[in-house]
Simulated scan of single mutants.
Amino acid sequence: MIISRTGSKAVVDNDTEAAPPQPPTPTRHSWEGELSQGAHRLDPALRMSIQRPAPGIAVIGMDGEIDLSTAPRIAELIRQRLTAAVLHALIIDLHKVSFIDTAGAELLVRAQRRAEQRGIDLHVVPGTGCAKRILKLTGIDVGLNCHDSVDTALAQHRMP
C-alpha cells in the first residue's frame, strides 16, 4: 500500500482516507507513576520530637523544613506544650532544620509572646544553618533567648 500526503490529509492509493498522524506520546518517568498513585506525602520533609530532660522542661526538636505548610502543625504542638500544667521552660531545637521561611520566624515570635504571658522561659537553639541566618537577618534573634546547643539552654535555665 502506498500512502501519499496531500495537504493535511493522508491519502491511501485505494481512495480511502487514513487517520491523521497522532502526536508522539510523552515519555513518563518512573517517579511520575508513583506520584499519581499517591506514593507521596504532603510534608515528608519535617520530623518533630519531644523530649523531657527534667521535670518542667520540654525540648521540641525539629528536623527538616519549616514553611507555610508545616507551620500550623508546629504552632499547635508548641501551643500544647505551653499550656501544659507544670512547664517551666520550653526549648525549641532548630539545629537540624534545613529550610525555614518567614512563617517559621513568625511562629517563633508568637511562641515567645505566648510563653511570656504564661511565665514560661522559651529557649531557641537555631544551630549554625538557615534558622540562625533568618533570625539574624530579620532581627528576631535579639528578642529570643538563643543558645548554641540544647545543653547550653538547659544549663542557662533557672529552675523556679
Rank of each mutant, 00 (worst) to 15 (best):
M1R: 07
S4E: 10
T6A: 12
K9W: 01
V11S: 03
V11P: 03
D13S: 11
E17H: 11
A19E: 12
P21S: 12
Q22W: 10
P24H: 10
P24G: 10
W31P: 00
G33K: 10
G38F: 02
L42V: 14
L46Q: 12
R47M: 11
M48P: 07
A54R: 06
A58F: 12
G61M: 01
G61K: 05
M62S: 05
L68G: 10
S69M: 14
S69Q: 13
I78R: 07
R79Q: 12
Q80V: 08
R81H: 13
L82V: 09
T83A: 13
A84R: 05
A85G: 02
H88K: 10
L90Y: 00
D93W: 09
L94S: 09
K96E: 15
S98W: 02
I100T: 09
A103G: 12
E106I: 04
L107C: 03
E116Y: 02
R118D: 07
D121M: 08
L122H: 06
T128V: 13
A131K: 05
A131D: 05
K132E: 13
I134C: 04
K136P: 03
G139V: 07
G139E: 00
D141E: 14
V142P: 01
L144D: 00
D148E: 13
S149H: 00
V150T: 09
A153D: 05
L154S: 01
Q156H: 12
Q156V: 04
H157R: 09
R158W: 02
M159I: 04
P160Y: 02
